[in-house]
Design a protein around this nucleic acid. Structure first.
Lengths: 328, 328
DNA sequence: ATTGCCGTTTTGAACGTTCAACACGACGCA
DNA sequence: TGCGTCGTGTTGAACGTTCAAAACGGCAAT
């Protein structure tokens, strides 16, 4: 059906290999011949077969990615952005993403190992690593090359990229202080040894640095209802804060609901800059996800240089200021 | 590196083909031999190489999908759900999704044709079709098999699946009428000959059917600001409606903002059941995206039976009732 | 004229799988 | 005894590509 090298060769009056050389090592072919072959390629609409190339080279030029079940509470977009960045970054290197699903981390690893053994993927991208995540070790055991978005503490040997979460909440806190707030609270998850802790740190350290007494530090699960409840506690405080930094837009949205419901005043900054944030005119910390995606693909495709065994990057987020932290 | 059929054959004391038969036509192998081969397979951890299989069979068992740039206004989740459903549906048939990016529809088609010619994908899934969409015709010209989510009017020849948008707004309207509302407005996009029109139809027809005088029918682009502005016009109406059906959660969120800001009363039902809807306690019409994804994969993988040349399905959405349309 | 070398092009082989055809012994039947 | 058939297992070939090695003609140096 599709033309092959042989067809092109016949049309151009040369051999298989010469056609291959025109594509992969043009300098080895006499210009005159090259033009004839290129004309034949164009005319026949020839495209090298990736499966045959992959078989020959033992490389599928595919990168695996597990699509997690859609989390009903998640305000989306950040994962979307990540996925798009990955696919986009692969394009330049002629690599593509292979998506698969799994019910849990174990299934994710099993799937990756199977796909890798089958030659369907060259490597894997891990998303949303948490402390104590079993996946890196399991993948190493299964000999699947991978790169991780996030850190686990056990980050030896594999490339990773992460966002500087502490820098994000630090920027949020500084911004609120500059707007005149002296008592700034925090709302986040219970200590998790990971992302949540770093976001809390950024707030706490910045308060200390600016000489502000830290406001209330409230914790709860990442949901709208909890955010609303925490806000109620803040407003009922005998010495209520005038601003709050939250660990997610979800919590921030909950806070805003209570604040609006009571007609109260409380400056809020969220985290992740989800579409919901712009919908609610909520200031938020935006993660440089696009850059992270590109960095991960680069880490996988360009083998680490000799001097830098584990190429890693910690990327700074950006504060997006909106009405929730500025309007009087 | 990885064991091959040959390695397994050697280990089991049989030939290549017998190993292949154990996997693909077990009934042709004597049970005794089969067990020996299966033991060898397990012991060596053998997995058939998909590239070699694909090369032999001229089928990559991959389905292409273009990942669109993340739309900053979109409240997400619906596309997420669709993608997950596709990947999940493919799993049962041992097919996987291949993601790629493109800047526009033209690039999407060009990419699909290139991937198809290269044998990297067997077929394509199109998302978000609109009237006059150039993609179906272009794909047919490029001889890329595909299935579409949505209809364009030019739906001859290819399988498609769609959600019954009119039924969604009809259910929303009926729900509001049952709650006692007599004057129900609509807020959507300007006429587009497609999805937007069908959503308007469902509302208009149901009002007529129930003998209700249709309330104001306002249109504008799909954004929060426009939703807020339209709500202001509704509330300022000399004979203001008591309820409004919107074409999207984004518009609904805008409406809610104005309504809450003014402390006014207006029942609202959105469309898409995004996470934002649950965040705002907004009633919304939920599309059966998971079912749609599965139906599309089925349409692509199971060639249409002789009697049914273009297997097509129109799926009914579901109304999710929340506080925005019930609380007094 | 012989030798060696260079630029260019060709042929052989291999990646791992499965279809097609064939080999082989056992068995039933004429 | 001879022939066809069945169940089981084997070998040859092909999918389309690219690496490795060899071939070829031209050219310069000996």
């Amino acid at each position: 059906m599709q033309p092959t090298v042989e067809d092109v060769a016949k049309a151009a009056g040369v051999s298989r290999q010469t056609v291959s050389n025109v594509l992969n090592a043009p300098e080895r072919v006499r210009p005159e011949t090259r033009e004839r072959v290129e004309a034949a390629i164009d005319q026949l609409g020839y495209r090298p077969n990736r499966l045959a190339q992959g078989l020959r080279a033992s490389s599928s030029r595919m990168i695996g990615y597990r699509l997690e079940p859609v989390h009903p509470h998640a305000l989306g977009s950040i994962h979307d952005r990540f996925l798009h960045a990955l696919a986009d970054a692969g394009r330049a290197e002629d690599h593509h993403l292979l998506l698969y699903t799994a019910d849990d981390a174990e299934g994710e690893v099993a799937g990756a190992v199977a796909l890798h053994k089958a030659g369907a993927i060259d490597a894997l991208v891990l998303y949303g690593l948490h402390v104590g995540d079993p996946r890196p070790a399991a993948l190493r055991a299964g000999r699947v090359p991978f790169a991780a978005f996030g850190r686990t503490g056990d980050d030896g040997g594999h490339p990773w990229v992460d966002v500087d979460n502490a820098a994000g909440t630090a920027a949020a806190t500084r911004h609120l202080a500059e707007a005149g707030h002296r008592r700034i609270a925090f709302a986040g998850w219970p200590p998790d040894g990971g992302v949540g802790d770093r976001r809390a740190e950024g707030w706490r350290d910045t308060c200390a640095e600016l000489g502000l007494p830290p406001g209330p530090d409230l914790r709860g699960e990442d949901s709208l209802a909890v955010g609303a409840a925490l806000a109620a506690r803040l407003l009922d405080d005998p010495d209520p804060p005038t601003a709050v930094v939250t660990a997610t837009d979800t919590l921030a949205a909950g806070v805003l609901r209570t604040v609006h419901g009571r007609g109260a005043r409380l400056a809020v900054v969220g985290f992740d800059d989800t579409p919901t944030a712009s919908a609610l005119d909520l200031s938020s910390v935006r993660q440089p996800i696009e850059a992270a995606g590109h960095a991960m693909i680069a880490a996988l495709l360009k083998p680490p240089a000799a001097g830098d065994p584990t190429p890693a990057r910690l990327l700074p987020p950006e504060l997006i200021v909106r009405g929730s932290s500025t309007s009087p």
